[in-house]
Design a binder for these strands. Structure first.
Lengths: 153, 153
DNA sequence: TCGTTAAATTGACTTGTTCCAGAAAAGGTG
DNA sequence: CACCTTTTCTGGAACAAGTCAATTTAACGA
C-alpha cells in the first residue's frame, strides 16, 4: 500500500504524462512498485485487494496506456504471459528462470541504449537490444519444483 | 522442394536423432529450410502444398518433437506467435521488425554460448543469453506498411 | 457545476496452442 | 512379410492471454 506521499507523486507523474488520475491507475502503479514483473493477471488480483472490483479490461487499458506513455515497460519472455515493470529510465535486462518463470533485473553491462550492436543489421534500423538470460534460480535448483512463481510452459 | 539428396540427408538426420522418418517430418524440415522463422501456421500451410492434407496437430507434434530432439529451435518474439528455425548449432541472435514482424538472423558477436554474462547473476545459474534486436526493416521504412510478413501485434 | 472527453464496465470474441479419444496408417524389427 | 509400436489422423473441446464494441461512469477544465 502506498503512503500519501507516494500517491501524490504518482498522481503528479500521471498528470505529467497527460493522463487522468483515477483509482485503478494509482493502484496499478502501487502494485507494480511492490511487485515488479507482475503479469496482468497478478496486477488485477492485487489491484482488487486495494479497490474491490476492477474489470480485467480496465487493467489491460491502464497497462496499455502506461506503456504508451512510457511509464511502464512490458516484457514478454517466451512461454510466459506479458510482465510489467516501472523501471523504464534505464535500459536494463532480465534473468528468467526456466523452471518457475521468476524474473530478476540485471543492470545493462554497457549502459546506454541500444547497448549492443549487431554485426550486420540486415537493413534494419535498430532501436533497442533486448537481452534475456535464461537459467535456473536458486530456489528451483535446491528445493526443486513447487517453488514460488508461475511455472514456465 | 527438396532434392533427393537433401531428403536423404534429412532422413539421416532424423534417424540420428532417434526419430522415425515420415512424410510430414521431412516436409517440415524442407519448409523450414526454405522459410526460416516460419510460424506453426505458415509451416502447416507450406507442408500442405507438398503433401495435401496434414492436420494442425501433426504439425505441432512434429515441431515439438524436433525442438525436444534439438533439431529445431523455437523462438518467440514478444507479440508474435512462435517461430521455428533449423539453425541450432550456433548461438546466433535475431533482428525483429517492429512493424511487420519479420525476423532476420545475426551472428553472435562473441561466439560461444552463453556469449554474454550478466553483471550480477542474482543466484541464477545462467544457461543461455538470448539477444533480440528490435528495429524497423528496410521495407517498412520505405514502402511503409503493406510489406511482406506478418504484422506485429 | 456543467459539459466534454477520457476511462471503466460488461460480455462476447479472437488467436495461438494444447489436450483428448479412438481409429487408421505408416515405420522399423525380426 | 508380419507384427508391434509409434506416429498421424479426424474432430472436437479446452485453454490462456488478450482484444473489441457498446454503454455507463467519472475526471477535470471552463
Amino acid at each position: 500500500m502506498a503512503t500519501d506521499r507516494e500517491t501524490a507523486s504518482r498522481a503528479a507523474g500521471l498528470r505529467g504524462a497527460g493522463l487522468r488520475v483515477t483509482g485503478p491507475r494509482l493502484a496499478v502503479l502501487d502494485v507494480l512498485a511492490e511487485h515488479p514483473h507482475a503479469t496482468a493477471d497478478a496486477v488485477a488480483e492485487q489491484v482488487r485487494t486495494r479497490l474491490g472490483t476492477v474489470s480485467k479490461q480496465a487493467i489491460y487499458d491502464v497497462l496499455a496506456a502506461f506503456v504508451a506513455a512510457g511509464l511502464v515497460r512490458r516484457i514478454e519472455p517466451a512461454g510466459s504471459p506479458a510482465r510489467f515493470e516501472t523501471r523504464t529510465a534505464d535500459n536494463h535486462h532480465h534473468l528468467v528462470c526456466r523452471a518457475c518463470g521468476r524474473v530478476a533485473d540485471v543492470d545493462c553491462v554497457t549502459g546506454a541504449r541500444p547497448c549492443l550492436e549487431p554485426s550486420d543489421d540486415a537493413g534494419f534500423v535498430i532501436e533497442e537490444a533486448e537481452v534475456v538470460f535464461w537459467g535456473v534460480c536458486r530456489d528451483c535448483r535446491s528445493g526443486d519444483s513447487r517453488s514460488a512463481g508461475v511455472p514456465a510452459r
